[in-house]
Nucleic acid binder design. Structure first.
Length: 318
DNA sequence: AACGAGGTCAACCGCGACGAT
DNA sequence: TATCGTCGCGGTTGACCTCGT
């Protein structure tokens, strides 16, 4: 039993390791059509050379649109501390109380940030709580009933089909920023190939060199990423505007997700700080702006962008 | 500039549980 | 009831990154 899933992953020498951009697109497109769940079937039907387990993990921990990006806030850390003190290493349970955070993320945060600050005696007791059969303390949070949080009996619900939760991803770069930085605000042409193939009115792409202080070159500080893609809707259809900070990577997944969910939200603004630079080089497009007259740090890789648009395809025919 | 140590985090692995047949 | 397929959880790994020397 325990090895069944493992075996199915081994079967046919399925791919392992970091996900590529193309795989992400395939997975997203499939989920867009059929919703998440039934991972084994999904893995086969989507054409991905991945096992269902891997697909599920990628979705849950990385591609889900309702994920909150950026560092754990002090408030969130307090919640983690509190809940961990109550429940021990019940990461999925803790994650349920922290919308937008995954169990993996919380677990990693605990191990790399919190645990090392605590004396071993302190964290080991809470970590052992569950194994010792300690009863889970009732929550002080509005949430599932305390009966429902008894240990592993809690059956994690299948993630709901994608809903429009992009407001959670609101970027730190606002329109206001843009208007305040005219000196670096220049328009570039549409993605010709993309627009034609997708059938979407992609009227313009703004490459805004936003030099405000919130823009950081530290790719790991995702809070500070200033990339922004706006999906704008008007009578003529939808078009997309992309704003970015200099010297940071424009994450293609963001574009994809905006289009992915754009159908459901007429006007969506999203943060493009999805993913990290290190996950996979192919999952990010280095937006170095070939269209800029002035600058050296903003170029764009239209081929890659075109590939993206082609890959995800138009909304209306999905 | 080069290198090593330590940190971070996406992804993997093993396992237990559950539902369907 | 037994078996099978699927799913989700928690622990662990390892590639990549940053920082100090």
């Amino acid at each position: 039993m325990s090895s069944r899933w493992s075996n199915s992953c081994e079967r046919g020498k399925l791919k392992k390791g970091p996900w590529t951009f193309d795989e992400d697109i395939r997975l997203l497109r499939y989920i867009r059509l059929h919703g998440p769940g039934r991972w084994s079937a999904l893995a086969k039907a989507s054409g991905l050379q991945r096992c269902g387990k891997s697909c599920r993990l990628r979705w849950v921990n990385y591609l889900r649109p309702d994920l909150k990006r950026g560092s754990i806030t002090p408030e969130e850390e307090r919640v983690i501390l509190d809940l961990h003190a109550r429940w021990g290493n019940r990461w999925s349970l803790i994650a349920e109380k922290m919308p937008g955070r995954t169990d993996n993320e919380i677990k990693n945060y605990w191990r790399s940030h919190i645990r090392k600050r605590l004396p071993k005696s302190q964290y080991s007791t809470t970590e052992d709580q569950y194994n010792q059969g300690a009863s889970l303390m009732p929550l002080s949070f509005p949430s599932t009933s305390t009966q429902a949080i008894k240990t592993k009996e809690v059956k994690a619900s299948t993630p709901a089909p994608p809903t429009c939760q992009l407001p959670q991803l609101l970027s730190s770069c606002s329109k206001e920023d843009i208007t305040h930085h005219h000196h670096h605000h220049h328009k570039v042409e549409e993605f010709p190939e993309a627009a034609s193939s997708s059938g979407i009115a992609c009227s313009s792409v703004d490459c805004n060199l936003n030099n405000n202080s919130s823009c950081s070159t530290d790719h790991r500080d995702r809070d500070n990423l200033g990339n922004q893609l706006q999906v704008l809707s008007d009578g003529a259809g939808e078009h997309y505007e992309l704003f970015r900070c200099p010297s940071i990577e424009y994450d293609a997944l963001s574009v994809m997700l905006n289009q992915f969910y754009g159908a459901g939200i007429p006007e969506a603004v999203s943060n493009s700080s999805l993913g990290t630079a290190r996950t996979d080089v192919t999952s990010t497009i280095q937006l170095t702006d070939a269209y800029s007259n002035s600058s050296d740090d903003c170029e764009s890789d239209l081929a890659a962008s075109g590939m993206l648009w082609n890959a995800i395809g138009p909304i209306h025919d999905q």
